[in-house]
Design a protein around this nucleic acid. Structure first.
Lengths: 340, 340
DNA sequence: TCGTACCAATGAAACGATTCAATAAACTTC
DNA sequence: GAAGTTTATTGAATCGTTTCATTGGTACGA
């Protein structure tokens, strides 16, 4: 009862050759109905489970794809992961998931691990600079697709979302609903995403001669950081308040919302309209349901798998960069002022 | 430049035998400094990466542990996963993560996949009834530890958190801060966790002759469900309101909080104290910071790995069930009424 | 009846690592 | 310097699959 049965045991037990058992497993129609059933019965009786290591050793590659994300706890990545898993399953692969936690060391560990596993390829949302680690992968010929990061097409394929377009969308929506004095609340612009969203917003504001955009720095991307920005605004009070606020993510927006609604002097959306970014689960269930920018995470995950398949199948690698445009989700927090 | 280098290539390139290369990899001090360096240089020059399939085939088992959770998006599991990964890394193993998404089919797929990978063992937070699927694992002799689920010790080891104790803790805290008329807000008691938490709360209430506990059903475990319970309470109004509310999870509590604070007639914690369960990230950044019950997720993950190691190492399996007691986290939402 | 074609089934070779008994080389010790 | 001991290296055997050239059998047409 100790050692698990091997294909040889199955062959003996069913009275056939090992090659036949292998055929039952991999090419069922190459073998006659009668023997197929006999083999399947033997497999069942012995509790045989194929040893994937041996299979992999023989065929030279695994049926797994490595996926390394920055933070599995982040709903954005969770959704990407799930979509990637589903897409991979459809083509008969499985996803090995690694969470680097924004830590280059952990990332390197996963890269090594996945290479030892001879994954078919790698989807990676890299930590910090796209650097030597990735170049090494390229040299080794490991098909790699960058996720949520634009890549030099001479080097890698990539899938990303256009943050500039998202920022434009958000600001344009505030302008379209009649707001003119706008504010952008965001963390440090050293984060590319934040900088791009701001840039998009500025582009929209420039289109309206009578509109203005004020930039308010937040210390981080959290609810609490949002709340202190909100508190600052409340102190300013009345006529000094912006008419529309665009926050670089939903957490900030929820913080601002808490702060503004707590003091019962400011109404959302009548006095101030508010829009966030990411469309997290909490956005819809905020005190005032929060308008937001939704990123097509499912599409990202699915497309990443597709690009990887292309890389795996073609010999001479032609890289592609796919950039998706995010989507505006309108809720009560930006309802037109006059309708409110 | 195509095929990746094998250990034989390295041996040739370094002018040594394959066994020596293997020794450099696995028992570095068995080999002299000089040849070790020569081999390492060859490894570097050829970009050799060990083929884990071959290694695994020879030694008979992998260095990976399978972990199947119900929902990676759930912060509870995310935290367990991370702790398990860290603990596994410490003992030189890696975790293969699978997300069943509460779906028995996906779960079965991962179980099969992980068995084909010959994982050392399996940590699983099983979907629904602990059933034949798991019995099969037992028969096959795959070391398995149940996570967040109590197991029959004759069959499996397990790690879980005592929800009854958590419920008791929450209700006791409300009573200790002077509240007497309490309410429990929870989803269907068909969910074991909900039933246990309620039971614990009832146990605490029974200790105080003048205390009472009212049970309010919510349709689900979401913010919105909490809000409709809150709306119902607001309509009741004034003297009919409970003095303390215990919600079966933080989402419900946040919903109730939104509803009560939105109408500016009820104050938290002065009029009503509120406590949730899980201590999610949002609890601390709610409008009124939410008291909650925190589950020792890190400990869960770490202990699960430890129990699995025990199973793997000992031949005759002695199963253990470890139950942790959750922890009370006091914040403003349950500050004593007189102090408010 | 023979030749041809087709279909099932066979079993040895190969994948790339680890292991281990055997050997060679380098030291000790008296 | 011979015998004994330790240390370093070797290379064939092995793990459990898949692959593929080969064989044996059956059916068909001429």
């Amino acid at each position: 009862m100790n050692r698990t049965a091997s294909i040889k045991d199955v062959a003996t037990h069913a009275g056939v050759a090992v090659g036949t058992v292998s055929n039952v497993l991999n090419y069922p129609d190459r073998v006659s109905e009668r023997t197929r059933e006999r083999v399947l019965r033997a497999i069942d009786e012995l509790g045989f489970v194929r040893n994937d290591a041996a299979r992999q050793l023989r065929v030279g590659h695994s049926r797994t794809i490595g996926l390394i994300v920055l933070d599995v706890g982040n709903p954005f990545f969770t959704s990407v992961v799930r979509a990637a898993e589903d897409a991979a399953a459809l083509q008969g692969s499985a996803v090995l998931l690694g969470d680097s936690g924004h830590n280059a060391g952990r990332e390197a560990n996963y890269i090594d691990l996945f290479q030892e596993q001879r994954v078919q390829g790698l989807l990676i949302s890299p930590v910090g600079d796209v650097s030597e680690r990735l170049d090494l992968l390229r040299e080794r010929g490991v098909p790699t697709v960058l996720v949520d990061r634009l890549a030099d097409e001479s080097k890698f394929s990539s899938v990303a979302v256009d943050d500039d377009a998202g920022g434009y969308l958000a600001a344009r929506h505030l302008l379209d609903t009649g707001r003119r004095r706008l504010a952008f609340v965001g963390g440090p612009t050293s984060i590319r995403q934040v900088a791009d969203r701001l840039q998009g917003a500025q582009r929209a504001v420039k289109e309206e001669p009578d509109a203005a955009l004020e930039v308010l720095d937040a210390e981080g991307q959290t609810v609490l950081a949002g709340r202190s920005v909100g508190d600052m605004l409340v102190e300013r009070g009345g006529a000094e308040l912006p008419e529309g606020i665009f926050c670089a993510n939903d957490l900030l927006a929820l913080g601002v919302m808490q702060s503004l609604t707590m003091t019962h002097t400011v109404r959302i959306p009548e006095d101030v309209a508010l829009i966030g970014y990411d469309d997290i689960d909490f956005a819809v269930s905020a005190v005032v349901p929060l308008s937001s920018i939704r990123q097509p995470t499912q599409l990202l995950g699915r497309t990443a798998i597709e690009l990887l398949s292309e890389e795996v199948e073609s010999q001479n690698p032609v890289h592609r960069s796919v950039v998706f445009t995010p989507e505006l989700v309108v809720r009560q927090s930006t309802a037109p002022a006059d309708a409110g």
